[in-house]
C-alpha cells in the first residue's frame, strides 16, 4: 500500500507530512531509554512480519499487522512505522521520499485510533474479545486502504478509479488480517494469561 513519488498533489503530501510529524512528536514524548529497546525490537518484528506472505488463491498477500502494532505500542506506533517505512524506502525501494509522511500516516493513524477505541474490550474472554480482535485486524487494514484511496482521489479526478480499486483489492487482505489478529491474541491470552492486558506497558 505504498504510494510512490510523483503521484500525489502537494496539499495531500503536506497534510500527510503534518499528520506524521504530529503523531511522531506525540510518540517521541513517550519514548525514553527504558522503552526504546522494546519499541525497536517490536518495530523490527513488524518489519519482518511485513515480509511474510500468506497465499490467497493463486496469488499471495503480505501481512501488515498495523492493528497489533497500535495495540501494543499506542502512539509509539508512529515513530515505529516511520522508522520501518524509511528503511523500506531507502533499502528496499518501496515508496519514496516526499510521500513518506502520507504513507506513514495512512498506516499508523487508523491503527493507533482503532486500538485505543477497542482496548477496553479486546482482552475479554468469549465472543466480545474475538469480535474486537477481528475488528482491530480487519478494520485497521480497511481504514488504511480507505486513506490511501482518499489520498489518491484528492490528488486528481484521474485517480478515482484506481482509488476505488485499491479499496476493493484490499477487502480480502482485511479479512485475512482479521482472522490473523484473532489467532495472535488468542495465543497470547493462552500462553501468558493477563500479561498484555494487565502487565504490559510500552
Amino acid at each position: 500500500m505504498h504510494v510512490v513519488d510523483g503521484v500525489l498533489s502537494a496539499p495531500v503530501l503536506l497534510a500527510g507530512a503534518g499528520a506524521t510529524l504530529a503523531g511522531t512528536a506525540v510518540g517521541l514524548r513517550a519514548l525514553d531509554h527504558r522503552n526504546l529497546p522494546v519499541t525497536g525490537v517490536l518495530s523490527a518484528t513488524f518489519f519482518v512480519a511485513s515480509l511474510i506472505h500468506v497465499p490467497i488463491g493463486p496469488s499471495s498477500v503480505h501481512l501488515v499487522l498495523s492493528g497489533l502494532l497500535g495495540l501494543l505500542l499506542g502512539w509509539l506506533a508512529f515513530p515505529a512505522v516511520l522508522v520501518a517505512a524509511a528503511l523500506q524506502a531507502v533499502f528496499f525501494g518501496y515508496g519514496g521520499l516526499f510521500v513518506l509522511g502520507v504513507n506513514v500516516a495512512n498506516v499508523a493513524l487508523p491503527a493507533v485510533l482503532l486500538a485505543a477505541a477497542l482496548r477496553p474490550w479486546i482482552w475479554r474472554e468469549g465472543p466480545v474479545g474475538t469480535a474486537c480482535a477481528f475488528t482491530l485486524g480487519a478494520g485497521s487494514v480497511l481504514a488504511t486502504s480507505l486513506l490511501v484511496a482518499l489520498s489518491l482521489a484528492l490528488s486528481g479526478e484521474a485517480f478515482w478509479l484506481p482509488a476505488k480499486l485499491t479499496v476493493v483489492s484490499h477487502l480480502p487482505v482485511a479479512l485475512i488480517e482479521g482472522f490473523l489478529c484473532v489467532g495472535a491474541l488468542a495465543l497470547v491470552r493462552r500462553v501468558r494469561p493477563g500479561f498484555l492486558a494487565e502487565v504490559w506497558q510500552p
Binding site: 525490537v41 517490536l42 512480519a49 485475512i176 482472522f179 495472535a184
Partner: peptide
C-alpha cells in the same frame, strides 16, 4: 492457515517482548 499464522505472529510478539526485556 490464518489461525496458525496468527499463532506464529503471537508467539513471535511474545518472544520479541521477552528479548527486549
Amino acid at each position: 492457515t490464518w489461525r496458525s499464522v496468527g499463532h506464529l505472529v503471537g508467539m513471535g510478539l511474545l518472544r520479541s517482548i521477552d528479548r527486549a526485556e
